[in-house]
Amino acid sequence: MTDGMFGAKGTGDTSGYGGLVRQAVNFGSSERPYGSYFDEVADDLERAYPEFSEAIERVVVDRGELTLHVKREKLVEVAFILRDKLKFEMCMGVNGVHYPEQTGRELHAVYPLLSLTKNQRIRLEVSVPDGDAHIPSVVEVWAGNNWHERETFDMFGIIFDGHPGLTRILMPDDWEGHPQRKDYSLGGIAVEYKGATTPPPSERRSYK
C-alpha cells in the first residue's frame, strides 16, 4: 500500500469506526435444494452429462443466481451440453475478475448464459492460476464470445486457447500490461494547483 493523502499509511482509516474488515468472496458450495429453477437445471445437466461431479467443482446459489464452477478442461464439453441439451442458446460474453489473494486461482472468467427457450439464466465460472492463465475458448460454441474473449485477454491477460484471433481489442496493439488486473495501477497523474497537490485516485487516502 502506497502512502496516501496527508501521509496516511495502510488503509488510511483513522476513525476506528465501521469495523472495516474485508470479507472473503469465496463462498462454499450450496446445499440442495437450490430453489427456483436451479434444481431442475442441475438435474438436467447431471442427466445429460455423466461426468457432472468431475467437471463441476462447486455449485453456488447466491442472491437468486446460480453459478456453476467448471474445471477448465471440461469447459467446452459442458458448454456444448448446456447449449444443445439444456437450451442455453446465448452466452452474454465473458468477463474477468482478478483475485490476487486466492493463490492458485487468481484469475476468474465469468460467463453469464441465457436461455431464450426457457427464459432462464445461469452463470459459469472458471478459475485459473496466474502463472498458467489458459482457458479453452468457447467461440466454437457461442460465436458471439469472440470479442468478449479478446477483451478479457486485453484487460486481464487470460489466454483463450483455440480462439480464432486473440489480439488486443480495446488498448493499442503495442500496449504493455493488462490494465484491469489488480496489480496494474490506475495510472492517473497528480494534479497541482497553486502549490497544493492532489494525488491520483489510486494513491489517495482510502477506506477499505
Binding site: L20, V21, R22, Q23, M92, V97, P112
Partner: peptide
C-alpha cells in the same frame, strides 16, 4: 440487453 455484473468484497467500493 445491458448487463451489469458487479463483484463486491464487502468494502465501500466496487471490487470489479
Amino acid at each position: 440487453e445491458l448487463g451489469a455484473s458487479i463483484v463486491s468484497d464487502g468494502g465501500t467500493k466496487p471490487y470489479r
